[in-house]
Design a protein around this nucleic acid. Sequence first.
RNA 1: CGGGGAGUAGCGCAGUUGGCUUAGCGCGCAACGUUCGGGACGUUGAGGUCGCGGGUUCAACCCCCGCCUCCCCGACCA
Length: 418
Amino acid sequence: MYWSKYFIPTSKEIPIGTEAVSHQLSLRAGLVHMLTSGVYSYLPLGLRVLKRIEDIIREEMNAAGATELLLPSLHPLELWKQTGRDQTLKEVMIQFKDNRGRDMCLGPTHEEVITDLVKGFIQSYRQLPVTLYQIQTKFRDEMRTRFGIVRACEFIMKDAYSFDRDEEGLKKNYARMYQAYQNIFKRMALDVIIIEADSGAMGGKISHEFMVTAPIGEDAVVVCPSCGFSGGVSGAQDEGGSCPSCKNEKLKKQVAIELGHIFQLGTKYSLAQQAQYLDENGKLNPMIMGCYGIGVSRVIAAIIEKHNDAKGIIWPKEVAPFDVEIVPLGGDDSGAMNALAQRYYQELQAQGLEVLVDDREESVGRKLNDADLIGIPLRIVIGKRNFAEHKVEIKKRNASESLLVDIDGVMAKIAEIK
RNA sequence: CGGGGAGUAGCGCAGUUGGCUUAGCGCGCAACGUUCGGGACGUUGAGGUCGCGGGUUCAACCCCCGCCUCCCCGACCA
């Protein structure tokens, strides 16, 4: 991709009314743009990150035996009355009458819809278990939005739902999802703290939250500075309580942001909506459900929050919008330098890498500072001084030093360090 | 929904105790020239219903009333 043909509106000004680093950088690096409070456009660079995060989630969910589908966002309110959540979620639900006078809402979550779907097609124990998931936009009428895409009214969520014959099956599925979540966050370079949590409006008994410590957090966790033990804030585990694991140190309280939440729902929805199956004895039983969410768009903010420096974002390579950025700086020999950039562009693409070439006619300072800001993991700088000596510069965004490499040795070097 | 802050050019801001403001500055944008490895410099230029609606006044961006929007803290939630 050539920068001049693309759309990356960067800014050096810190946007008004922003405090969180991730909020500032996601705006300055041209990832997202606010339309109104809690409602964001994903610009090309932000969309690329989003897609990469989604791909990681898809791979891990598929590997864990879940199947992707896509449910509607537009729901008849009638469906929500079956579980009473038209009332319990009333405050966050965006409701309205359509032109036919029907009461409708935009889906804030999808337990009712998926349960309604599954009960229509699954009648026998032979068809269970089944786990379905989607990556989709949710709508929640937040009274108070926060930190840009961290807490938005329209946001992207991965939500999965499991249906089992019994508790044992649910626990198995739950454990599988738990493991998949650990894999997912690890691949995104996020250290998660997993805590037992309240089920809230979801219902059910057991649930776990996947948290990442960050100043943009809305919740608190306690962490042991000595052994790394962590947990939710409650009773004996409050700050100052001695670590229940190593006893060496007192626990420290930290704010954390919730990125994922998994629930053992049990029969709350299957009973209310009569999602039943026939067992081998010909007896009707309610399906045993679990649900598993990840705030996909929120993950972007968390990654930026954890991976940045004074100059900008430092994308972990698995989620970076591009793998390599080529920066020809121009000069007397700019024709030959641009040709070299084009050559690298083709060679790197042939290796399956996503490549951005900053072909803009901008000052050196602006190009290099923009490169730092948008944070592509690998950068190839073609400057006239080195070019005259048949060399180019390769720099990792997360390294302080750059490497001088022979013009013809670039591909080998990239393959070595990428 | 309670408490605080803020709306003036695409972005970031200044301003007037009401009138020399034809509303400025920085960034960005356009053109030309000089530069050319770390957000270069100069000259010229385009760009604004001063959030919206009323009111007071000879005169309102400025004062009064009402409303809208955005941000932060809290409550609530995923």
